[in-house]
Amino acid sequence: MPGSTNTILEQNPSNDKGSLITILQEVQKEEGYISQEAIVKISRHLRISRSTIYGVATFYSQFRFNPPGRNSIKICLGTACHVQGGDFLLNALQLEIGIKPGETTEDRRFDLGRVACLGCCALAPVMMVNNNIHSRMSVIKLREVLSKYE
């Protein structure tokens, strides 16, 4: 959707440089990731250099720079999840779908990410697929959960 970045920019005044992160968040929400073209447009709008924008965007773990899959998997690697075996879960998941965090499968079915904590520590280990949190996960439950998402 090439038009959506323009719409977002129209809604944010060009003199408010403090809105950069908000704009990046909105663009990612609309387009799924931050494309090179989007950075160029934001740069022209806010009159901030592309390298500065790139510097800000890469600082925060929320932003991604390649297109996402149809389903986004986020493995929680918070302390409680780690203690309850979140690492084993991540390893098994990597084997199962064949990609590392930050990547997307070739058929674009899944993309994989890590998250520092989802705040569901009492139900650890957890993983989030799209916006659904799956609690008390285990390596054995993985296939069953993944099969729900096409």
């Binding site: 403090g18 992160i21 908000t22 800000v56 925060y60 929320q62 520092a116």
Partner: peptide, 23 residues
């Protein structure tokens, strides 16, 4: 203001920088 995922932003001055749209 929604944070964009950076642990260091819990620190006061880093948090302020983030609200100002910077690293």
């Amino acid at each position: 203001k929604e944070g964009a995922g950076a642990f260091v932003c819990g620190e006061e001055t880093a948090l302020i920088a983030s609200i100002e749209g910077e690293r």
